[in-house]
Amino acid sequence: MLSLIYRELHLTRKTLVTCLLVYGLFALLTDLFALSMQVGNLAKYCSAEDLSAQLPMVPTAAIFGYFILLVTAPEAIFQVLGVDFKTPWLKYALSSPRTIREHIGAKYLAYLLMTGCAFLLGFLHLIIACALSGQGIPDGMLFLFFVSAMLVMMVSSIFLPIAYALQNMDFVNALFAIPVILLTLAYVLSAINFFIFTHHEDAEILDYVQHIFQKLQALTSAPFFNILKPLALLIAMLLIIGSYFLSVSILDKRRLIKGGTKGVTQKKGGNL
């Protein structure tokens, strides 16, 4: 199983390195901005009130960077799946002594490993950035980081079995873009809400955005959500486990249908 996980991680290394470089640059800019609040130009030329208004930008930027890492993990796995479907790898895998469960399990474990690393790296950077800006970690940040990871994992757990069922990564990638765009929008709106409306009550242009957020805040304060919050990890884990067994079942069932996976189905006019 370790060698299969190695395969997954190795085939995603370009995506992961690119992501880390982009994230690193973003994190560096965030840290420089945070540092300037203590010892840089912001500290020199801004009033205490203005500085205080800028503070929330630091954790907000940290969340953005964290989101880049989180979304890269499933994309990386989809990339490997694309390679699996284009080559006869699945055919080879099915004829090897390793079971379907082990092959698919390696994919899920690699994904969980990447997500876990994204969480640790993202949260570490948050601590550093907040420290540099001379503020503590805002209340609820750890929970926000945690819930973000759970949300992305929940969405990915839906798409992995779909990928195995369709074996068309172009379609899956297009479909996956929808929740990614929605989540990105949510982050952008939360950032706007965070530091425009918290500290600039007279901003009229985004009154509509504030209205949406007030509605969302009311919803998430409801008793139902208060129960759900601590269960987020459990729900995410159950979804991932369910997704794994569904993927195994789908790949196994395809053995009963047209020659198994796409790598083995009848090519038009080709060998049977």
């Binding site: 395969r7 080559t87 090897s96």
Partner: peptide, 29 residues
């Protein structure tokens, strides 16, 4: 399956790999 080997008309291994890496993967398979 421990005792059989399959050879197909197309290479089943990802083209991004090299032989050394393939050896590491197949050692676990």
């Amino acid at each position: 399956k421990n005792q059989i080997a399959a050879v197909f008309d197309e290479l089943p291994f990802a083209e991004d790999l090299n032989a050394k890496q393939l050896g590491k993967i197949l050692r676990g398979v």
